[in-house]
Simulated assay, not measured.
Amino acid sequence: MECVIGVVGRDFAVVAADTSAVQSILVHKTDEDKIMLLDSHKLMGASGEPGDRVQFTEFIQKNLHLYQFRNNMPLSTAATANFTRGELATALRKNPYSVNIILAGFDEDVGASMYYIDYIATLHKIDKGAFGYGSYFCLSLMDKLYRPDMTVEEAVDLVDKCIKEIRLRLVVAPQNFAIKIVDKDGARDYGKRESVSGNPSESTTATTA
Rank of each mutant, 00 (worst) to 15 (best):
K125H: 00
L26D: 13
S197H: 09
V159I: 14
M36N: 13
N100F: 09
A104C: 07
F69V: 05
M44Y: 02
S113E: 08
A78K: 14
R167E: 03
D143P: 05
S20E: 12
N82Q: 15
Y97S: 12
S197M: 13
K29P: 05
N100R: 08
I166V: 15
V110D: 07
G45V: 10
K34P: 05
A178N: 08
V8H: 05
R193A: 01
A187Q: 10
L168N: 04
A79C: 11
S140M: 04
E32I: 02
C138D: 11
A81M: 09
R70N: 07
S140T: 14
A79Q: 13
F59P: 03
L92Y: 12
M1V: 09
Y146G: 11
R53L: 15
A79F: 14
D18S: 02
G48H: 07
A13D: 00
V182N: 01
N63Y: 12
V15N: 01
A16W: 03
K161S: 15
I60Y: 07
N63Q: 14
I120V: 12
Q175D: 13
T204M: 14
D109K: 10
G6H: 01
D189A: 07
Y97K: 13
G45I: 07
D143S: 04
K42W: 06
V27M: 04
I181C: 06
S113N: 10
I166Q: 07
T80A: 12
T122H: 05
K144D: 11
I126K: 01
R53C: 14
V99M: 06
S24A: 02
R53E: 15
T57N: 05
R85I: 09
D39Y: 04
E165D: 11
L66W: 03
M73L: 06
K128R: 04
N100A: 08
T208H: 09
R169V: 01
S140L: 03
V4F: 03
D160S: 11
R53S: 15
L26W: 00
M150R: 05
V182Y: 03
R167N: 09
A91K: 13
D31K: 08
A112R: 09
I5S: 02
Y146D: 06
V156R: 13
K144C: 08
L64P: 08
G86V: 02
C3F: 07
T90P: 11
A206L: 12
L145W: 09
C162H: 02
G6Y: 00
K62N: 13
V4R: 10
T204H: 10
N199M: 01
F106I: 00
S20K: 07
L66C: 00
D189P: 12
V172E: 12
G191E: 10
D109M: 01
K144H: 08
I117Q: 00
K144L: 15
L141G: 02
T122D: 04
A112N: 00
Q23K: 13
D157R: 15
C3R: 11
N71R: 03
G45D: 04
T122S: 15
G105E: 03
A206Y: 14
P96A: 07
G45L: 05
F177Y: 13
H124K: 15
G105M: 03
D11Y: 03
Y97V: 06
T80S: 15
M73R: 14
K94V: 14
I102K: 06
V22S: 11
K29H: 08
P174F: 09
K184C: 12
L92S: 15
A16Y: 06
Q175N: 15
L139E: 10
G9F: 01
